[in-house]
Amino acid sequence: MIVGLDRADDAGVYKITDDIALIQTVDFFTPIVDDPYWFGQIAAANALSDVYAMGGVPKTAMNLVAFPIKTMPVSVLREIIRGGIDKLKEAGVVLIGGHSIEDNELKYGLSITGLIHPDRILTKHNMKPGDKLILTKPLGTGIINTAIKGGLAPDDVIEKVTRQMAMLNKNAAEIMSAFPVHACTDITGFGFLGHLAEMIWGSNMGAVIQREDIPVIPEAIEFASMGFVPGGAYKNREFRESMVQFSEEIDPVTRDILFDPQTSGGLLIALPPSHADELLSRLRQNSMDTAAIVGYINTGKKGMIHVK
């Protein structure tokens, strides 16, 4: 075993030969959008993301389904699975099985298995002083999803955010593989600062984040100001507050967005400053037009993130 439960990481890695290691992950959740086909796609993109974040190539998948078969038409389930399979096809992954149970609450997700070279594993814990941090997708999906639940998000916003969540991190991972990346993770339930906190903790580093460089879905600011912040954002903040120092002018809404739990969020990549601009322009050329350099790593205050 190369990567296991001892340190928090995106997926487990098990070495088979000197050239091949197995990378495995599982993720499932309750619906976040009403459209079952899109929910299936988002669930698949989210599950695949952990493999991409570690630099692996996903190969096979298994479905996990909990479905209220007595109260919900089976066509809903079919659409969810179809969404999942379409996303797997896009990723070049084969569905080889799965398991379903009856449950009052619908849940769907996948277990993904991939391959990775044992020497080329990207963990969260190898950041170096001076590394620049690149974020590939804008923040705010948790807040928008809360507004969707409340029936307040307009259709065009729902569609925009749905597409963003269903977007694979495959492209970002492939582009990143040509660069000397030190560490990477995908932004999900712990929010941007929660995941960054894990990275600097593991690397024994500090980080400086420039607020104005963080890509944010504009409508998330509006909904957060109206009080549509998910409970998870508060929990994330409570848990990691001691590791974050906010400059005074950072308003409460921005703080919530930085802790907002993301569904199928982007990759957070740490790499030497000499390569950061080139990686950023490659990402932007490949339809990740909101990708941005959001900060850098230092050794000033170890274990602290300073948001300016």
Partner: peptide, 15 residues
């Protein structure tokens, strides 16, 4: 009865 609800409701009322 929870902090998240408190902050969100206060924020909405002030909005």
């Amino acid at each position: 009865d929870n902090e998240a609800a408190r902050q969100n409701v206060v924020r909405f009322l002030e909005f």
